[in-house]
Design a protein around this nucleic acid. Structure first.
Lengths: 143, 143
DNA sequence: CTACTTTTATCAGCTTCTCTGACCATCGCG
DNA sequence: CGCGATGGTCAGAGAAGCTGATAAAAGTAG
């Protein structure tokens, strides 16, 4: 095993956080959501997003994004409304059930961050967040 | 969108690195490997690993791990040898083709890390690596 | 040494995710 | 208006993951 590459080092805590979030959501009754759906849901902007935007941000094809959005819509997590500025497009917005799930997710993330801060110390945790935010500038295809 | 949660901040650069690695592997003729296979391959120890270990490290079921190892074996990336210490178990080892692919991966990772270091500065990059390595202590199920 | 439990791995069947390719409707521009 | 670009859907297929059931070897208790 020895020292792991930076990719795996990024992936390991990501996966841990994801697991914790899904465990909490399932316990709260949101047991019909999947990781793939969540990765799309996460990228919906405050005023809704177009399918194409979501697909690009999540790095999947439009077809896959559409497939996942349909499921989220069936579950009541999102709704699809026509885009007033473009008759071809439809805006995906967070709906009732999605709004209910969000604070649960936020609470788990806060918990996990607190644990990580306790382990790393405030200084290193702040540095981690700062470094990742800056890294996003050159690695996020959605930006 | 606004400020993203720490999970997504971890995932974005992870995904970028993964994409770069797979692009380079494909260009070098290793176009038959998938991300799922690579996530298993990555966890194989220097002296081989058991299927159960790989499954746990990659956080998939033994069945899934077995399925992926079979594919890796068919591609010549790994080989399965009997475990001398336990007749039930078989050790998964990196084989010829796997050994050939590893330096290509390492080179891409080095390139990407250099880019990230250029963007963040040496100090922040070192801090990032340090923080992630420490985080692994409390988030890696394989440890 | 026998009986029971645990561990390691496999087989079978199914769901979910993701892709490619083909297609349609609308937009925007010259 | 005509035409390329954009936003999205439909159809079909492969990959990846799961649960459940089974088998074989190992470990453990008596």
């Amino acid at each position: 095993m020895a020292d792991l590459n930076i990719g795996l080092l990024l992936y390991i805590p990501y996966r841990e956080l994801e697991n914790r979030v899904f465990a909490a959501l399932a316990e709260a009754g949101f047991d019909d959501i999947t990781t793939a759906q969540a990765r799309i849901f996460q990228r919906i902007g405050p005023n809704g997003s177009r399918l194409t935007e979501l697909a690009e941000a999540a790095q999947v094809t439009k077809q896959t994004a559409g497939f996942l959005v349909d499921q989220l819509a069936r579950g009541g997590y999102v709704e699809r409304t026509p885009d007033p500025t473009d008759a071809r497009a439809r805006l995906v917005r967070v709906a009732r059930r999605g709004l209910t799930a969000m604070p649960i997710t936020a609470a788990v993330i806060a918990d996990v961050e607190a644990e990580w801060t306790a382990h790393l110390g405030q200084r290193r945790m702040a540095g981690l967040r700062d470094a990742l935010a800056r890294l996003r500038e050159i690695t996020d295809p959605y930006l």
